[in-house]
Structures are given as structure tokens and as C-alpha cells.
Design a protein around this nucleic acid. Structure first.
Lengths: 211, 211
DNA sequence: TTTTTAATGTGATTTTTGTAACAGTTGTTA
DNA sequence: TAACAACTGTTACAAAAATCACATTAAAAA
């Protein structure tokens, strides 16, 4: 299958979650306009996304929820090979994200957390043991970790991100305010302050986007 | 001035931060390619953003850092009227974001945090006192809060977001996994799991974006 | 002084993303 | 059975964002 657009992949993740809830409620089919309503987007966008992943619905019946979930899971998690995740830097944000992961029913598996604080190393965080950053490469290789969540203090961001790459991690979410660049890895940056300042800008009456 | 593109506003926030660091280091002018390098983007993009905000550099000298910071601040924070921020739901994520805010030198002012846990109400979190969600409207009006960070458990997301809007908040960052829709407010959604699953997708060898 | 170099500013183009329009089809109703 | 309504799938279009290409100009070098 052709590479999917980023926004489509993001929506697939959300589709799956609400679809799972529908399935748990006993629904077995859903119309594009129903799914759209749950995510506050347009039915066309839903149909297009579903088209892109090669699923096809039944006219007048909608989409089979079960099949859709299976297909999305195949695409995102690639059920054949589980992807393992590590959180690097288990401060407040790291711990918060850890809980988000544990509460979600994502198929991604959190395998380890890392920190350089001796008090933290060896401790268990929501059931996952914390290792020293020194042992990053060893554990990443042993556990087959491919994805890393970077939540260290900014001054360590660059160094640690390089260590993560060298350890074999291929996808990194960078929550530090430091802009990074790592060839050969998929790097997603999320900047808390930037987001807040953007909202501040667009919240001002003169910048409000009218609908 | 014309309404700025979202991505430009995001970059302005980042420009300001790195520019402030340069200024603190004693630099007074900067070239587009230098600024670009700090953020790992292209010089053209920097120049276009700067053009959009109506600043003009000096040929062969670059941009005046001081002027640029002042202009960006005028645009984002609108120095005439300080914007006040509240965090609604002071669990782990709320506390983590609170620390991010306190560590940053954003001009936005965190005025209050809210929760419905009696043990938390009245307590101070990193210097900011926690109020009951019951008193949201009262405090928002008293403090002139316009921006809210929503970090409550998912089951309360919809209800609390409506309360925030009714209280007069015009910009909301929704960190819950629940998709919201609020007319008349600028709503920015951030879904932790979606981000992670997106990274998982693009980290798989067959989906890697080659450069 | 003339040439070259290095930078800004911006129209034109491309890429990505979202939306509109509608053809096709299946079930329902008259 | 004929007309209609409802829903999918897709092509064509529009909007947003990024990039390219290059005109312009100030300083440096020859």
C-alpha cells in the first residue's frame, strides 16, 4: 500500500478508538457521517481516509466496525511485529505520559523507562522498571524497542536523542523545547509553550477565525 | 496586519525563544540562515515568516534581534493586555505542564489551577493556588483568564470544556483523548496516543520517509 | 572604481491537505 | 415495478503550507 498522509494516520488512530467503543456497545456497522460526528470532522474526510486504506463499506449499511478496526490495527501496529516503546526521562511529564499509555488500549507496548537519577533507577513506575540511561543501548536491543519518548530536561535533549538513535530507536517524540534533527529517524516534535502561545495568538478577538 | 498562518505563529514562538538566548549571549543581529539552522528549517521559510510580520532586515547585516523579539512579542502577547491562563485538572499532566510554564519565559501569565478533588483545592501547586471547578466562572472573571489548558480525566472533558467556555475562556488546549467542538472558541486538540501511534506508523521501515 | 560575493524580499510553483460535487448503487416506498 | 432516498467511492477543485527561483542591493575584494 502507498504511504498514507500524516493527517490520515492521525485520524486512523482516533477512528480506531471510537470504533472500539462502538463495538463494545454492541454496534457492528457505522456510517461515515456517524463516525464523522464522533470526531467532529466531515463525512467526506472519513470516506476518503477509509478509501485510502483500501477498505470498502457496504452501500446503505456502512462500514463493518470489526473489519475496520482490524485493518487499522494492521496498518498502525503491524500486528505481525509488536513495537516496543521507551520513555526516556521519567520526570513529571514522563510519568504523566506513562499513565496515558497505560490507560489507553493501544497495541504499542511500553517496555522500559530510563532516567539518570540514581534514586529513580531500579524503581518501578506504574509497573515499568526504570533503567539507567547508561544502559539504554543494552536494554533497547534486548527488548527490541523501536520508539522513544523524550522527556528529559532541555540541556540533555541533544545528547540523549543521539544516544537513542545510536541505540537503534527509529521513531522519537521530542517533548523538550529543543529543536532536534536526526537523520534516519522519524522525529516528531511537540512544544508545549509554542502550542500555548499559538492558542494565545488565535484567541485574541482580532485574530479569531470566524466560521 | 493580516491574520498569520498557524505554522508561522508556531515558528514565531520558537524564533523568539532562540533569539532571546542569542541576545543573552550578546549577539545583536542574526542572518536568516543562522536562525534557520537553530530550528532546523530553511532560510527561505525564516525570511518569509519575517516578511509576513512586516519586519525588514538589513541587507548583509541580517535582522536586529532586539527588534524582532519586540515585534514577535507584540504579535503573540499583545503587550497592551496580558493574557491569563488557567490549568483545569491538576493531575500529573497538569502539574507537568505547569512546570513547563514556570520554567519558560513566556509572557503569558498562569493565574489559577482548578480541580474537583477536595484534597487539592486550596493547595498551592508550584506557587499557584488550586480552586474548585465550581468556582471556575467566578475566578476566570475575577482574574481575567482567557486561555485554558484542559487536563481532566476524559469522562469530564465535555462537561468541563463547556463550563470553561461559559466562564468566558476563548482559547482551549484539550489534552484529553476526547474530541471536542466548541463554537466561538479557538480549540487546539492534542492527543498523546494518536501522536504515538503516528510515530509508530512512520517508524516502520516500509513507511520511512526517505530524504 | 569595477567586480564579485552574500544577503534580503518576493512572485511563481509545488506539495499537502481538505472540500465539493456527483456518479453509481442498493434498498424502500408508492 | 417505478420513483425516490440514502449512502459509498472518486474525481475535480480549493486552500494552506512549503519551496524554488531570482531580482535586488549592500559590502567586500580586486
Amino acid at each position: 500500500m502507498k504511504l498514507l498522509p500524516e493527517r490520515t494516520v492521525e485520524r486512523l488512530s482516533k477512528y480506531r478508538r471510537v470504533l472500539q467503543r462502538e463495538l463494545d456497545n454492541g454496534t457492528d456497522h457505522i456510517y461515515s457521517h456517524e463516525l464523522a460526528k464522533l470526531l467532529h470532522i466531515t463525512p467526506v474526510q472519513v470516506r476518503r481516509d477509509i478509501m485510502l486504506i483500501g477498505h470498502t463499506g457496504t452501500l446503505r449499511k456502512g462500514y463493518s466496525i470489526d473489519n475496520l478496526i482490524k485493518l487499522i490495527s494492521e496498518i498502525i501496529d503491524c500486528s505481525s511485529s509488536v513495537q516496543n516503546v521507551a520513555i526516556v526521562g521519567i520526570g513529571k511529564l514522563g510519568q504523566a505520559l506513562l499513565d496515558y499509555l497505560n490507560d489507553s488500549n493501544t497495541k504499542l507496548n511500553l517496555s522500559a523507562v530510563f532516567d539518570n537519577n540514581p534514586d529513580k533507577i531500579g524503581t518501578s513506575y506504574s509497573g515499568t522498571v526504570c533503567y539507567s540511561i547508561e544502559s539504554l543501548k543494552k536494554i533497547v536491543e534486548r527488548e527490541g524497542i523501536t520508539i522513544g519518548i523524550l522527556t528529559v530536561p532541555p540541556e540533555f535533549a541533544k545528547e540523549v536523542s543521539t544516544m537513542m538513535k545510536d541505540a537503534g530507536i527509529v521513531g522519537i517524540i521530542n517533548y523538550t523545547p529543543v529543536s532536534l534533527k536526526l537523520d534516519g529517524t522519524f522525529l516528531e516534535e511537540y512544544d508545549v509553550i509554542t502550542t500555548l502561545e499559538k492558542v494565545a495568538y488565535f484567541s485574541k478577538p482580532k485574530n479569531a477565525k470566524l466560521l
